[in-house]
Design a binder for these strands. Structure first.
Lengths: 208, 208
DNA sequence: GTGCAATTGAGTAGTTCTACGGAGGCGCGT
DNA sequence: ACGCGCCTCCGTAGAACTACTCAATTGCAC
């Protein structure tokens, strides 16, 4: 291990406190070099070409550009660095999205120092790694939460914001009946009942 | 400053990573001693009598016993230590509650190291201190979010969970019309429109 | 081109919510 | 004793949502 080149890590998290915590945890680890940190996705992407990291520790909830948007953008720019997500939320949908986007891991912020370090090494080699505490979520019935189409997500977000079907129809320039159709598709896919439960689901899905 | 006795601080946060970050930030500060850390409110309360801190850095969202419940419990036990809340959320209702409970401050997790340290010193002396970035929230129209009665909160929580008026009425053994009355009072007080926006408001109020 | 998913739109019925209005009982503090 | 806030309940009318059904268009994949 100690003969190999150290893993160059870029930290992207909007909370300086969390970045400080990560730095403190990794600074004694001689095979990990922290080569930079960013407080949102945009900064992270700008830094990538400058500091050329091997792995990006990427928070999901960030202002300006969140973790998912960041990875999408990286793919468009053909940036091939490994990405390890770091999130507060034990959310299956998040894990699913991370995997779908081709990330190399999803780590909850309640990891211990040891697990954080070993997950960083693992993810830097490739594959997809998650917290041991998340294993269950992954092995559960393959029946993931059905995936909503873009339009459906758009409408679900509007519903969760408290907008009326009439308003939504107006904003999207479609008929109220169409909004109803989408809404009913969403209910069927998610199992959600009334408007309030759809709002809850929207937040579980990370649409806010 | 350096002549005074150091401030003894107890950290309570469910994320070891955050605790590590705080430790790293405070360890060079000779007038602050970290005398213990806890991962939830229960642990914190048990530790208080053992380590006798001057100030407790208390996270709000924790399993087992959250930050608000913890301070309530401390009041019941007549524990007089100062409390400085530490939270992810820029939420007026949280700040209002913290103040109402007699805490000595409310600090967002995006504080810089300098501000964190000075806020700790300030709060350890008494008073009520908040992030500079939160000042606005405090100085805004004195008209705080109208406070809901217990019953109204109970019903708002149920609404946000997606329950129908009929269900809520059944669970609380009251008439559907009564639920409607409460619901309408909630709408009037919060300015919320339909069910979905009430769900959003419930989450803003920290009722989940 | 055939098939399939996504998006758009509609009919019809029934349920639920919203927006007014009103009122009685109960406890608490002055 | 009186007021006041909270909780309880009701009527009526209309707006919004839900639950089914069906179908035309588009675009993409095989």
């Amino acid at each position: 291990m100690s003969l190999k080149k150290p893993v160059k890590v870029l930290i992207a998290d909007d909370h300086e406190l969390v970045r400080d915590g990560i730095r403190a945890r990794l600074e004694d680890e001689t095979n990990i070099d922290i080569v930079g940190d960013a407080s949102n996705g945009k900064e992270a992407i700008e830094l990538i070409s400058k500091v050329n990291p091997d792995l990006i520790l990427l928070d999901i909830n960030m202002p300006e550009m969140n973790g998912f948007e960041t990875l999408e953008q990286m793919r468009k720019m053909e940036l091939k660095q490994h990405v390890l997500y770091l999130s507060l939320y034990d959310n299956k949908e998040y894990v699913r999205r991370a995997k779908a986007l081709g990330a190399n891991g999803y780590m909850l912020k309640d990891v211990s120092q040891e697990e954080m370090i070993s997950t960083i090494y693992n993810a830097s080699e490739g594959g997809f790694w998650v917290n041991t505490s998340l294993d269950d979520s992954l092995n559960e019935p393959a029946s993931e939460m059905p995936i909503l189409t873009e339009r459906e997500q758009e409408i679900l977000t509007a519903i969760a914001a408290g907008k009326l079907n009439k308003q939504i129809a107006g904003e999207l320039n479609i008929s109220v009946r169409t909004v109803e159709s989408h809404r009913s598709a969403i209910r069927q896919k998610t199992g959600g009942g009334n408007a309030a439960s759809l709002a809850k689901i929207a937040s579980d899905l990370g649409l806010l």
